[in-house]
């Protein structure tokens, strides 16, 4: 039923009642939306234009916080680290998830078991995965012992500024199961006839993947991509837990590891807001992060018009 057909100026009594009930029933969400989203977002813009430590009255500064932010070397370090992490982690985790899902989609015996094994790491709290990977990637830890067996001298990971971010990426890849499960479910939903048609046309495995699986799966890939980017740019817990370990260099400062090499934007923001109470400055940082996320999301969405395929759409 289209809404237009019902567009009359006057509502009947029953319709009025239904409308009233509708707003009554969604009122918990509506209240939360205004109190915990709309007002905070507005307030956050205002704070970002002030100098405020939570105790005195805010002092209006205009764009000063933003100017200060873009002149701050530590902010660029955090920006660089966050982008480095996101730009490598998101594609790598996507490729591995797709590959594993594709392998499991070929009527493999024990599919359920494999699926469970790949998914279970996502149930581990990130605090715990940070701690265990700190040991796995210890300079003389099991990873380097294994590499030594292959004759490779492993790096000291979290104690070497060039290897901290790859270490974080490896740690996060352990939790790729949630995206993988979605992709596998999506692959299993692709109609079998398409593959049969492909078989008759004599497609090989790569062509089948490239011309049947990928297009049919593209909406789900897009969804995963967007969510992964949003989450990756907000990375906090893993570097925070690592950076506050006793043995980690830079613990007394921002907790971003050696030379702040794994300091992320949200970690810096947390420090400014809840350690130093620079609420205005931290709010400005939050808005810069918001704009970055927004632009990247829009870019991915825009580009997706070229590579996603929706059933029932003519092209």
């Amino acid at each position: 039923m289209s809404a237009n057909r019902h567009k009359r100026l006057r509502l009947t009594k029953a319709e009025k009642r239904e409308t009233a009930w509708f707003y009554l029933l969604i009122s918990p969400w509506l209240f939360g939306f205004f109190a915990l989203t709309v007002y905070p977002m507005g307030a956050s813009i205002y704070y970002s234009l002030t100098n405020w430590n939570m105790f005195q009255t805010p002092k209006f500064l205009g764009a000063d916080n933003y100017i200060k932010l873009f002149g701050n070397a530590t902010f660029y370090t955090a920006l660089y680290n966050t982008f480095y992490y996101a730009l490598i982690f998101v594609p790598v985790s996507m490729i591995i998830s797709l590959f594993l899902a594709w392998l499991l989609n070929r009527n493999v015996r024990g599919r359920q078991i494999y699926r469970t094994l790949f998914y279970i790491p996502t149930l581990v709290p990130v605090v715990v995965s940070a701690l265990i990977f700190m040991w796995i990637l210890a300079p003389e830890g099991i990873c380097n012992q294994f590499l030594a067996l292959l004759g490779i001298q492993g790096p000291s990971w979290f104690y070497d500024a060039t290897w901290t971010k790859p270490g974080l990426i490896i740690m996060s890849l352990w939790g790729l199961g949630s995206g993988f499960v979605l992709l596998l479910a999506g692959m299993q939903g692709i109609p079998q006839e398409l593959y049969e048609a492909g078989y008759l046309d004599g497609t090989n495995a790569w062509q089948e993947f490239r011309h049947i699986t990928m297009p049919m799966l593209s909406p789900m890939i897009l969804y995963n991509l967007v969510m992964n980017i949003i989450n990756a740019l907000q990375l906090f817990t893993q570097p925070y837990v690592l950076g506050s370990q006793q043995s980690m260099p830079g613990r007394a400062g921002l907790g971003g590891g050696i030379d702040n090499s794994f300091l992320t934007i949200v970690q810096l923001l947390y420090n400014q807001a809840f350690k130093q109470f620079k609420m205005g400055y931290a709010s400005a940082m939050a808005w810069v992060l918001f704009v970055i996320i927004l632009i990247l999301t829009l870019l991915v969405m825009k580009s997706s018009e070229a590579w996603t395929y929706y059933e029932g759409e003519s092209r």
């Binding site: 109190a35 007002y39 905070p40 939570m54 949200v266 807001a273 709010s283 940082m285 999301t297």
Partner: peptide
């Protein structure tokens, strides 16, 4: 309208709400 608004709140990173929420 409200349903679309509701869905779009999923995309808002929590950092832009966090500080005022803390203040509240």
């Amino acid at each position: 309208f409200w349903f679309v608004v509701c869905l779009s709140t999923m995309m808002i990173p929590s950092q832009v709400r966090m500080i005022p929420q803390f203040v509240i």
